[in-house]
Design a protein around this nucleic acid. Structure first.
Lengths: 227, 227, 227, 227
DNA sequence: AATGAATGAGCCTTCATTCAT
DNA sequence: GATGAATGAAGGCTCATTCAT
């Protein structure tokens, strides 16, 4: 629950603790201060164009300090991904487990929830980052695939199967449906972190609504089924 | 048909000519030889991680030769985008103008055509490239937006309006629909050029079929309209 | 007297300090070690033909270290000029302010002093350097003009006005006189740092003596005043 | 007589000839067209900063053509010096040989003549060029010393000896006097081709007049003759 | 633990020089 | 003779990484 909330929010409790024991707190908080700074810069500039000097400067430490916590730039990258995404995904899984209601509403909830909890957050830049850099860092790509994508797909798979089993959705090629559902979310983040500045801004909520409308129209076990 | 064909096809006629006048032919063919080599490497490694030595080596020339044709690495990048994508898009526009048939079929044709002519080609890496690098090259992002994205969206807009006007599609929020249609295509290329190697390969044709099925289900002017 | 002394003299105190805290001392001494090395090489080879590798090697550091202290080769060049010449000029101004005696002796003192304190030092190469490179570095030329030439001319102007006011010198076109006085000094350095190796060595002291004699008395065979 | 005149003047006769036999004339004129272009650029930008592409372009030929006439950039530099200066000096010697009148007037004539025939011409940039580059091209410096400087000094030596022998000048350290006379001329060209653009423009004629006045009369307030 | 000066490999870019046409 | 495409060595500059303090 706690870590999943808005990742951009200041760590209020720790901050209070640090006022009392500034040194001690620092020690523990350092790694995540560093990955937070690195996340911002990686997302903003990409991996290659991000200088460790800048990461250190943003975190308020010296460049050498980075190497006390991370063996290399790549290790820092990996930590950014690991720390940023996994907790958020875990929280999403929990929300799913507790959900009760129609599968259509479940899907909508998952989509909008993802947008509010991840996509519309600093973390939203991570998928774009992974996409951009996966070729050069296969290990990280593999990690992301295993730990994030697979679990995310499982979530959607379960939701779709739930709907089909209940007769709410028509029989579906579930794996492909997953792709179709993921695609717009992916597009939203990609858009946000690459081309959105060239005019033609997307309105995320409206986009997701339309997407959901079309999706449900297509998934539902319609009385007659066209075509 | 001619200019649109597979960009990867060897330049057969010129090759014959070059046997006779190697130096002269080179002169004309060089730029596209260089952009072809650059496309491969940019797509494979990203802009920053691509060394001009490697581009030159792949094109079979020395590094200095690159600078006879392109002022800088960035200029080369821009040329890759311009040369690779714009002609393909123009050809797609022509195909649309000549199309006769149902709007549903038109949409399917455009989607599959895009996959066969661009997405499933070496050019498929370009969108991913743009996405990855647009932050660092706003000028190129702008260029791509103006020359490719805007025109591509216009194409889809026309197709959707055609369907709505004919009563074939239900009334739609057309702009959002465009996004929804583009998203899976984008996802396909992004997937292909980033994470596909981590297992969980996508089968493009099957994916597009499902996508189209859901899409049409959702777009059609259903006799009663569910939900 | 102190700051003005021979710029080539080793930094004796700091050297002792460095034995104790080698790293710490370096930090402060580096910039002038680097400009000293750069001065030698710029004077010897000219700006363009001087490689930063060589500057670094002569200063006993790596090439990258140069960039910790100077943003570019040009910035290094500018620092060489600023650090080398300006302090020497300031000291000369002080000497003038404290001078008492005939204006003829004042002039001789300024001329010989310049030779001993600048011209006959490693700094003597700087004017030649400026001359050689001013076309390609207008900014540096401007800087040198404002900070060195203008102030030097003011010094001479004051000395000449002093002599004319006292009736010691005849009425003069003072600005042109300044040029005439400066010219031989300029020539000495230019000669020293360009053609002197081709035989026909100049003997600076003798040259300056003759120069001064002619300056004060003219060439003519005397009392009656020709023309 | 002809070659000595204004070197900047168009070669009128040859131009006429070339109208008739363009090809034949070209062949002979090429080398000097190339050195003329090179002179301009060397003087303007210095040796290192002058690109052979630009020299070729200014001469209206291709870069490869340069190598038909000159073995290397340095050879071109040498040819520029050789062709530009030697004829001008020879002409000056002739003027001296024919001179009749007072030695003071002779000196004035030589000084002003030099200014009008060389200093104030495109050739005026050559001394500055030699000064700037002599360190890197000792061979050229030697050449210039032997062919230009030595002969120029001989000219002045003869003029001064003439004046002393006639009792017109007081007994002089003639070699140093030569330096003193040359210095302002050198300064004029150096000034023109380096720092003049920073304000503080020199007026050459006025400068030379003052220089000559001081040279002949000295600075002192006259009749009684100090020292 | 933290610092930041120092390193050096690596890359983009330039340009004198060559050579097939 | 003339061309200009091609070359490749060289240099300025960057930045991840190290290590003495």
């Amino acid at each position: 629950m706690p870590t999943f909330a808005d990742p951009a929010a200041p760590d209020t409790d720790d901050a209070a603790a640090s006022a009392r024991r500034p040194r001690a707190r620092r020690k523990e908080a350092r790694p995540s201060e560093l990955t937070a700074a690195a996340l911002d810069l990686f997302v903003e500039k990409g991996f290659a164009a991000t200088r460790l000097d800048d990461v250190a400067a943003r975190a308020g430490v010296s460049k050498g300090t980075l190497y006390l916590y991370f063996d290399s730039k790549e290790a820092l990258f990996k930590a950014v991904v690991e720390e940023g995404i996994v907790p958020a995904l875990a929280a999403a899984e929990q929300r799913f487990a507790e959900y009760e209601g129609s599968s259509a509403e479940l899907l909508r909830s998952l989509l909008l929830g993802w947008w509010q909890q991840i996509g519309n957050t600093r973390l939203g830049g991570v998928p774009k980052l992974i996409i951009s850099e996966s070729r050069n860092f296969p290990e990280i790509a593999q990690f992301y695939h295993d730990r994030v994508i697979s679990r995310g797909r499982s979530l959607l798979r379960a939701a779709l199967q739930r709907g089909v089993a209940a007769g709410e959705f028509r029989p579906l090629d579930i794996e492909s449906c997953i792709d179709v559902i993921i695609a717009p979310l992916l597009m939203l983040t990609v858009w946000r972190y690459s081309l959105c500045s060239c005019g033609n801004d997307i309105e995320p909520e409206r986009f997701l609504d339309t997407q959901f409308g079309i999706l449900i129209h297509g998934l539902l076990a319609a009385p007659e089924g066209a075509r």
